[in-house]
Write a protein that binds this DNA or RNA. Structure first.
Ligand SMILES: [Mn+2]
Ligand SMILES: [Mn+2]
Ligand SMILES: [Zn+2]
Ligand SMILES: [Zn+2]
Lengths: 137, 137
DNA sequence: TTATTTTTTGCAACAATATTGCATTTTCGT
DNA sequence: ACGAAAATGCAATATTGTTGCAAAAAATAA
């Protein structure tokens, strides 16, 4: 069975054209994608609402994860770690290139532990680094 | 001279009621504020546009810095480090409490260095940790 | 396969958030 | 107090995100 179907089935999602197309887009794209990117890069004309709902579903199922940014955009990228529904455990650094503006998952760079002040309990950590990527030097 | 004026003068900003009120709000508030918070918490009825422009100005001058989040909101907090116009160098961890929903600058917790893959050049780093804060345990 | 149930989609309406140009007002330096 | 420069409010517009509901598609049962 092909990878795409596999992911959808494994997560008990009925396979529809929208989900196939959007998941395919993530599979073949290297960087992270914003909602707007998904809408643009998909040839088929899905409704905006469908895109919102699909992304949300994928996040809930642990198929994609989102990446915080300081501008007002949420970015999404494929989970390559074994994320389960409702519980992500991606633990890698994200890199945003100032030049090409791509956002890349650095799968092999783990977020270091930090010692928090007394009484603070950590659940999740996001480390986003910006600068110049390898391609743009 | 009082602290408020001092900050505005130092950054060559003409002192207006809007700027005074908004800066005052940041000075006396412990956590970070979203645009919406600023609008709500200010008694005087400034135009939304003025708030947008003021926040933007403050960020450019290095008076406040913004904090990335995974939901679609930009948070702002006072720079306590010596940030210059156009060049922030806050280097502290931000903590978002899942319970009280406050976002706190952990001024004394530095973001650790990470070793990036060959070719990547770092300019800035944002580390946002969420969990339960000291007050909410 | 066909019929039935469940889920997903598109549409429309709405809400919230953000940006821009321009006339008026306020602040600043003289 | 006066003139130049900067900030503000207003209105119009754009972008982004949410919700309810009927139609369409997919999954399941027969
Ligand atoms: Mn990632
Ligand atoms: Mn901070
Ligand atoms: Zn690049
Ligand atoms: Zn708390």
């Amino acid at each position: 069975m092909d990878q795409l179907m596999d992911i959808l089935k494994r997560n008990q999602l009925s396979v529809t054209e929208g989900r196939r197309k959007i998941l395919e887009l993530f599979l073949k794209s290297d960087g992270a994608l914003a909602h707007a990117d998904v809408e643009k890069k998909i040839d088929a004309g899905f409704d905006r609402v469908t895109v919102y709902r699909t992304l949300q579903t994928f996040v809930e199922k642990g198929i994609i994860h989102n990446i915080p940014t300081t501008d007002n955009s949420i970015l999404y990228a494929l989970c390559k770690d074994n994320c389960e529904a409702g519980h992500h455990h991606d633990n890698h650094v994200h890199f945003i290139c100032d030049v090409c503006d791509k956002t890349i998952c650095l799968e092999h760079v783990a977020i270091p532990e930090v010692k928090l002040p007394k009484g603070y309990q950590q659940r999740q950590a996001d480390l986003v680094i910006s600068g110049v990527c390898d391609d743009c030097r």
